[in-house]
Design a binder for these strands. Structure first.
Lengths: 349, 349
DNA sequence: CTGAAAGCGCTTACAG
DNA sequence: CTGAAAGCGCTTACAG
């Protein structure tokens, strides 16, 4: 393989001009069947493959979609990335991936790097609010899952999804609930929390008091474990009977805290997550959660990105409640009182 | 921002030729300080950024590294991808990511796509053995973690790492061990298994019989859970006292099977993994495993890829044993006999 | 050390 | 419908 053949080689081989070769390559322009066939023969005879770089330089357009996620190591983002890659592939595009490690400067510089490569478009799962951005970009940008700057957002309907969890827990009889929120500087964190709180408050006003505690953390395991441990290191009577977390990772951390403190889930405590990462179905007990439809989110994001004229509206996709073993009826107060030993302040098995 | 400035604009602004601009850009060639300064001023005055596409076309070289992994959703690969991205960034390169979904055709076509984009180099974590490949490529390719074709491999020293686990389990007194192997068509799967078996066999010959069972599966949770369930659905006396898995995911599946069967880990059963994904430290009990140094693997892979002249030798990095709560001394046979109820064939709590 | 010029491989008005 | 030619933005021998 001395040298890759070029349009020129193909043109010579087929006895046409390079323009004609280019035209059959594009498939758009009209070319006489005879010539078209000769060109195609030449292409396969020579094993010609278009040089995408040259094409990009000429058209200042590529078939690369840039994706920046806060942390590819987070299972939900990994799933999202996998879905975006698949969706991109369906539209004959490739994926360039960058991880911002939750650093907004890194995020900015990755976006710039993508711009320098004149990618076809950029999808960003924001780790910050993306303020202070140079908006005057000619390449389309859209935010996925978490809003970035003023760009259109494709995301789960966080409010609707959080409401599903609130209804589920309230319906099971829980009247003392703790909510482990995500970072307040993320729109997803705020929206999930606000919708959850609003719903529970609504129930409280309509049907009698509900005790709701709120703690803030990051979206990761450690936050969930730490916060749950604090929440649960109290005498049983003053503990919440349900913990709703803003992410599966937090919920799984909470599960571990409960386990360490020998609190039976779901009999003494219900725990719910958010995302439905694949792990949610593998922990013990399996996690009740709300599914974010990653495939659909990704597909819509890619479609919105590639759309002409450029789409500007946000898109919301509803989440769906997945009930598994980590949530159950609120424990009977008398039973709990009977078993607990307030003297030692110990947790019940 | 009507139009991005080009070298030509910079040259005019600075009153030099485009060649000179290019030379100060490259930093290599010698340019008189005065001109260099004028050019740099022009660059910042105009906000010039080099067009990487044009540069790529001219030099047929980019600063993009292509990475193909079998499945980005697998936490170990996600970690590896994150590490490769970081290592690439350290060398001022960007990452293009593709997932082969364990399909060797997809793998091939991703490699071709990377070639078409004239990436700087390709790192592939193989899902197949990568046979039938067009080797006559001018861009460097290296295999990471799992051998791809005949390309140099950077990987954990699977044999050494597997031996660590064998020593650990044998040292704890286990004499009936089950090994859950990875796919036989992966080099990693084969090497881990062979080294483990060889070591245990060695102990058997030197110090008396060791019973070793081997089951094959994929590297995922489900395989581990299914195989462990089979292994453990036997009367306690004929069960292995330790299960060594070829991946953390398998081990975590096994943990769940043990949990479902109410077999106490580590008191009645030891379970070990391989990889040390972040989840290994979060399951209950925390998983004893051997750590694959993802950061170092990634860094070496990238270095090997960028190296001139092109490196050709394989590189091995030792794994390290991480002892946590899932492994413990072999249970005493008499104690086990006392508690077990062979009549019902039930597992002991 | 610097400038003028060729050329990387393509696409696309422009004529015909 | 087709060809000849310009040009995308760079880098790099080639002279001087």
């Amino acid at each position: 393989m001395s040298k890759m053949p070029t349009v020129k080689d193909v043109a010579e081989y087929a006895g046409v001009s390079v323009g004609t070769v280019s035209r059959v390559l594009s498939g758009e322009a009209a070319v006489k069947p005879l010539l078209r066939e000769r060109v195609n023969e030449a292409i396969s005879a020579l094993g010609y493959r278009p040089n995408v770089t040259a094409r990009a330089l000429r058209t200042s357009r590529t078939d690369i979609i840039g994706l920046v996620v806060p942390d590819i190591t987070n299972p939900f983002f990994a799933q999202l990335a996998a879905s975006v890659e698949r969706a991109a592939l369906e539209c004959a595009h490739s994926l360039m991936l960058a991880s911002s490690h939750n650093d907004s400067e890194a995020e900015q510089s990755h976006v710039s790097a993508f711009l320098d490569r004149s990618v076809r478009g950029i999808i960003v799962v924001a780790s910050s609010d993306g303020s202070g951005l140079d908006l005057s970009t000619s390449v389309p940008v859209i935010s996925l899952d978490r809003r970035f700057g003023a760009f259109p957002l494709v995301s789960t309907n966080h409010a609707q999804a959080a409401t599903l969890i609130a209804d589920h827990l309230y319906g099971l009889g829980h009247r003392h609930i703790a909510y482990i929120a995500g970072p307040a500087d993320t729109e997803a964190g705020r929206m999930r929390k606000e919708a959850f709180v609003r719903r529970i408050d609504g129930f409280g006003k309509a049907y009698g008091p509900v005790e709701l505690e709120i703690a803030h953390g990051r979206f990761d395991y450690e936050s969930g474990e730490r916060i749950a441990r604090e929440l649960l290191s109290r005498p049983p009577q003053s503990r919440p009977t349900a913990i709703a977390a803003a992410s599966d990772q937090q919920a799984i951390g909470a599960l571990r805290a409960a386990r360490d403190l020998k609190i039976d889930v779901p009999r003494k405590l219900s725990i719910t997550g958010f995302d439905d990462i694949s792990l949610a179905n593998l922990v013990v007990p399996r996690l009740t959660t709300v599914r974010q439809p990653a495939d659909m989110l990704a597909r819509r994001a890619v479609r919105l990105l590639l759309e002409e004229p450029r789409g500007m509206g946000d898109e919301m996709v509803d989440g769906s409640l997945i009930v598994r073993g980590s949530s159950g009826p609120c424990p009977q107060p008398d039973a709990a009182a009977r078993k607990s030993k307030p003297v030692h302040g110990k947790s019940d098995a």
